[in-house]
Simulated assay, not measured.
Amino acid sequence: MEDKLSRVAQGIPPSGIRKFFDIVTEMKDAISLGVGEPDFDTPWHIREEGIYSLEKGKTYYTSNSGLIELREEVCNYLDRRFDLKYNYKEEILITVGGSEGIDVALRALLNPGDEVLVPEPSFVCYKPMTTLAGGVPVPVPLQAKNEFRLTAEEIEAHVTDKTKAIILAFPSNPTGAIMDKGNLEAIAEVIRKHDLVVISDEIYAELTYGVKHVSIASLPGMRERTIIISGFSKAYAMTGWRIGYAVGPKAVIDLMTKIHQFAIMSVPTTSQYAALEAARNGDKDIQEMCGAYNQRRRFMVDSFRKMGLDCFEPLGAFYVFPSIQKTRMTSEEFATKLLFEQKVAVVPGTAFGECGEGFIRCSYAYSIENLKIAVERMGAFVKKHTP
């Protein structure tokens, strides 16, 4: 069969995250800081609503766009939490997680050869999805000295006459970086100048610390050129429910819905009813989980600094991205040796782009007890391997 397979799909490397996750699952007494998944159970009232929908026999297809009451509630939520106003009948699509939203947005936008700017380090799916949609991903390296925030100058340096879109992902996986309103205003000017479309992955919008998330779509002249992708996985601990959404201008949502119609039909009905409860009554759950993440965040940053590793303070998501350059090991070498010597799994920064060399990603979406054990082992490892 090998000669029958897609050369495009074959040419895409596997995820650098899953490699270490697969090893650690077979290693006794290992601790993984590698996967970005909340350690909380989905809040009971949300699970209960999903269960109740099954008991009531609500197992039918929904509209391709999603339950109309869910679309309305998500739009109410965006207005309430982020002052974003969208028409629930025309400007929203319920998707199978945020990942499907990104995929469908790219397929709706791109013609063969269109370039998409991908600021890196970034989540592992953006470049492969761009390639599979016929586009050309163009990495835009971000810098630690700027706390991995994107600048107008970095966009200007990579725009060509083939550039159609840019993917923004703030708060960031893997760095935890955010973009405040001032940062966004600076890049919005360049984006408008070059008439770019923005795919804004805001899945971590609720997980910010000491600052409130600002969407680029809220800035003048940006709503009409921005597709916001988000979902319920991170804020509500609903990863396995696989439910997200996209909001944006009617023309692009219509086309995304057409693609979704043929590829997916509709999102699982049970998940939609659970998500409806989350969007309607889940604000308190977000607050409680975010408070726990914030405690862990401060502990992790402080722990890495005590090890002698440079680590900027992330203000979003649930990751830290410390520099391991003082050990004089590559990111891959550090992560591999740490796993086999101390049974702690982290992700090498290069899994998120070449400019991630010299860094590792550690998720703190784990219990504080496990984090304490992990940093104790890592501290011993760093001490041993630092010249």
Rank of each mutant, 00 (worst) to 15 (best):
F40S: 01
Y88T: 06
T131K: 14
H158G: 03
L54D: 04
F123W: 06
L93R: 01
E49D: 06
V74S: 00
P139W: 08
S53W: 03
V159H: 01
K162H: 14
E48L: 10
L70Q: 02
A152Y: 14
A133L: 14
I51C: 00
E49F: 07
T59Q: 01
V96S: 10
D103C: 05
K28Q: 13
A133W: 14
L67Q: 09
T25K: 09
E153W: 07
T25S: 05
A157E: 14
H45K: 12
V138D: 04
L106N: 09
N76S: 10
Y61M: 02
H45F: 15
K56F: 06
V136Y: 03
P43T: 06
K58L: 08
N146V: 11
N76F: 05
T42K: 10
F123K: 02
D114A: 09
T130H: 12
T151G: 09
T131S: 13
G66M: 01
E153F: 08
E154W: 07
E69I: 11
C75A: 06
E72F: 05
V104R: 10
A152R: 14
G50F: 12
L54T: 07
T59N: 05
G97N: 09
G113H: 01
S122Q: 12
V116M: 11
T130S: 13
N146L: 15
R80D: 02
Y52D: 06
D41W: 06
D114S: 11
T160D: 09
E154Y: 04
I155A: 11
L93I: 05
L150M: 12
W44F: 07
L109I: 12
D41T: 10
L109A: 11
R149M: 13
A105R: 07
V74Q: 00
E154S: 14
M129P: 07
T25A: 01
V74G: 03
F40M: 00
R47M: 14
P141K: 06
C125W: 05
Y60E: 14
P38E: 06
T163W: 12
V24S: 10
S32A: 12
E37K: 11
T42G: 10
F123G: 02
I51F: 03
N111D: 11
L93A: 03
W44A: 01
S63A: 10
V124W: 09
I46L: 00
G98D: 15
D114M: 04
V124A: 13
L84A: 09
R149A: 14
I31H: 07
V140P: 10
A133R: 15
V118R: 02
K89E: 12
R81M: 14
V116C: 12
I102R: 06
R107Q: 15
N146P: 11
Y61D: 08
T130A: 15
V74M: 08
K58N: 04
D103M: 03
A30W: 07
G134F: 09
M129S: 12
L93P: 03
F82T: 01
T25D: 02
R80G: 02
G101Y: 08
L70V: 05
R107S: 15
T95P: 05
I51R: 05
R80W: 04
W44N: 01
L54Q: 10
L109F: 14
